[in-house]
Every structure is written in C-alpha cells, then in structure tokens.
Design a protein around this nucleic acid. Structure first.
Lengths: 119, 119
DNA sequence: GACATGTTATCGGGTATCCAATAATAAGGT
DNA sequence: ACCTTATTATTGGATACCCGATAACATGTC
C-alpha cells in the first residue's frame, strides 16, 4: 500500500471547495475489493488527502446499505462492506457519468499525472 | 457547440449524490475562455446534465470574485467573468489535485469514453 | 413612456458532506 | 475481572451546493 514509490498524501487545495462525491467514491472503492470502515477511510485519505471523520463516513455507509448498494458481514470487530449486485451496477453507471462529466479535465492534466507515476 | 455528433445531455445517476465541485468546475471552465453567467450555466448543464439554478450559480461566482479568483466587466447586460492571475494558478493547482484524487477512475473508464467519442 | 426579453441576483428551505468530540462495542493481554 | 486497543457509531454545528420562486436590472421595441 505504501511500498511502491511515495506514500504521498495528496493535499487538497485551499482555493476552492473540493467536498462531495463521498458515496460515489465509496462505491468505486468497493468495486476493487471488500473493505471494512477503517480501510475505506484509509483509501479515501490517501487519494483525497483528508481522512473522512467517523461522523461523515459511517452515516454514508449506513445510507448505502439502506439503499441496497452494499451489504455487510461481521469479522471479529470489523464490519466488512461489500457491493451488492445492484451496488455494482450503480458503481458502473455513476463512474460512466463521472467520466462524461469531468473527462475533459483529465485529458488535459492526465499526461502530467502519468509522467509522475512512471518516473 | 452542438454540431459535432450528439448534443447529449449527460444525465446524472440516481444512485448516489453527485453534487459538489461547482466552484472548481467554474474555475476550470474559465481557463478556456471568458464567459458570462448564462454561458457558464450552459457549459455546466452540458457536462453535468443539470443546469445550476441562479440561486446556486451566482453566489458561487460572487464568492470566487470576493476571493480574487475572477474579475468581471460589463458588456451590455452581460457580466463577463474572467480569471485573475491568482485564479489561473488556483485552477491549475486544483486541477492537479483533482486528477491525483480521481485519476484512477478515469484510467479504467477512459477507454470506453474515448471509444464512444471516436466512433 | 410602456412593454417584453435577457441576464443577474436574492430568498427560503433541503441535503450531503465536512469537522471535533464523545460514546459504544468487541477483542486480546495480563 | 481489568485494562488497553481497534473499530464502529452518534451527536451537534458548520458550509457548499441543490432547488423553485421571485425580484432587480439593463436593453431593445413599440
């Protein structure tokens, strides 16, 4: 998780508000693998540069479960979240929307991004 | 603007909340060219599938101006918004943050996206 | 002046996300 | 049993964004 190159924390800009897309980000993360709450918080922290507080994260997870996008099982003290079939479809649909909405931004800055990763 | 292939309106998903990033999106749009309010609303509508209401858009623009990211001039009844130097730098910084935070999503779905555009 | 139109702007109310702080629960070590 | 720790969860308050509706303003037409 932090072996590859740099465990850089992507610090958010101060110039404008970058909030939003929390439940979308969670859906997307869970397409990778099942996770428990703290793992989800870790992954979000790594990407967004800020770790969601419990008071933000758990209500979002509860809402996703209530709407049938995720289901949970208990393992020790951990509660493991997993996409339902519906949740997987939701993730697919919302990822496509996201790409259509914001794709241009990446086509401009994506090259720099890749250069950094490879280098 | 609507000549190329399809003036598709990118309909947002119902499964999760896609709100947010309004002021960021505005900053990014204004790197392309100066625009007045309704133009900005049009561009946002095209990409996000929903047109921001005046009650959303104008306070956001006022805030960006107050913080020194944009400046305005009047042309007829139109008020034209233009990035300041600081605003241009802010756009750059926040775009880079955005790409680091969400780039992975595009690397997965970007190919489908391009295929659609080319086809 | 009177009127329609295009554009900017404000108002009131709702939701998701943000935070800090604290509580509740469950497991492991002694 | 007791303590520590990891994890889940709740509370209360703030902010940006969302909407529909309405107002204010500037321009052009008659």
């Amino acid at each position: 998780m932090s072996e590859d190159c740099c465990d850089n924390t992507n610090t958010p800009p101060t110039c404008c508000d970058m909030r939003g897309l929390l439940s979308f980000s969670i859906l997307w993360l869970l397409t990778k693998r099942d996770m428990y709450g703290q793992e989800i918080a870790d992954e979000l922290a790594q990407r967004r540069g800020t770790r969601p507080n419990p008071g933000t994260l758990y209500p979002a997870l509860a809402e996703l479960e209530k709407r049938g996008h995720v289901e949970t099982r208990k393992e020790g003290r951990k509660k493991i979240y997993r996409l339902t079939e519906q949740g997987r479809e939701s993730a697919r649909v919302s990822c496509e929307y996201f790409c259509r909405a914001y794709g241009e931004i990446f086509q401009e800055h994506g090259s720099e991004q890749k250069a950094k990763v490879v280098q």
